[in-house]
Amino acid sequence: MDVVDAARYIAALAVVLGLLGLFALGARQGWLTGLIAGLARGQVGGIKRERRMKVVETLVLDPRRRIVIVEIDGQEQRLLLGASGETVLPDSKETGL
């Protein structure tokens, strides 16, 4: 083993340790979790996909039931969620209330 081989081994070790350090820094700062979450949502390269559905509001009625207002494609739907199942509540305009 000559000096060139020893320098090559030391340089490779320095590169590997540097990459491990960057990985640890990214994990500690939260960059890694943001990158993984973006990949899971399909946001590759900073392109944000418009979501079609979002929860507007939720109200807990009792420990087993809650009402959730969900907006889907610009229209709001009211859902009654419970242990026995889910029910879509009618619009107050439709029932005359």
Rank of each mutant, 00 (worst) to 15 (best):
A24T: 08
K54M: 13
R49D: 07
T33P: 00
L59M: 13
L25E: 02
L32D: 06
G34I: 02
A11I: 02
G34W: 03
V15T: 06
L17W: 04
E50S: 08
A14V: 02
R49M: 11
L19H: 04
M53D: 09
L59P: 00
A11K: 15
G46I: 03
G46C: 07
I36Q: 05
G45N: 05
V44H: 10
K48P: 01
L19E: 03
V60C: 05
L61Q: 13
G30T: 04
V15E: 10
A12W: 02
G46R: 06
T58P: 00
T33K: 09
E50Q: 12
A24K: 10
G18K: 00
Q43D: 15
Q43S: 11
K48R: 15
L19S: 04
V56S: 09
G30L: 05
R8H: 09
Q29D: 08
A6I: 07
R41F: 02
R52D: 13
I10T: 15
A37I: 11
T33M: 07
R52C: 03
A6T: 08
A11N: 12
L13I: 02
A14E: 10
E57F: 05
F23L: 14
R51S: 14
V15N: 04
A27K: 14
A37N: 12
A37P: 00
G38P: 02
A12H: 04
L35N: 01
A37T: 15
G38N: 15
L13F: 05
G34H: 10
V56D: 12
W31G: 00
G18N: 04
Y9C: 06
L20M: 11
R8G: 01
G45W: 04
A40H: 07
L32E: 07
E57Q: 14
I36W: 08
V56G: 00
G21R: 04
G18R: 00
G34T: 08
Y9A: 14
L25S: 09
I36E: 08
A27M: 08
I47D: 14
A40D: 09
G46D: 06
G18Y: 01
I10V: 11
G18T: 01
A7W: 06
V15D: 10
L17V: 06
R28K: 14
E57L: 09
I10S: 13
A37C: 03
L61C: 06
Q43P: 01
Y9I: 09
L19A: 04
G38R: 15
G26Q: 07
L39P: 01
R28F: 10
I10P: 00
R52P: 00
G42W: 03
A12R: 15
L59W: 10
G21F: 03
A40Q: 10
L17H: 02
K54Q: 15
I47Y: 10
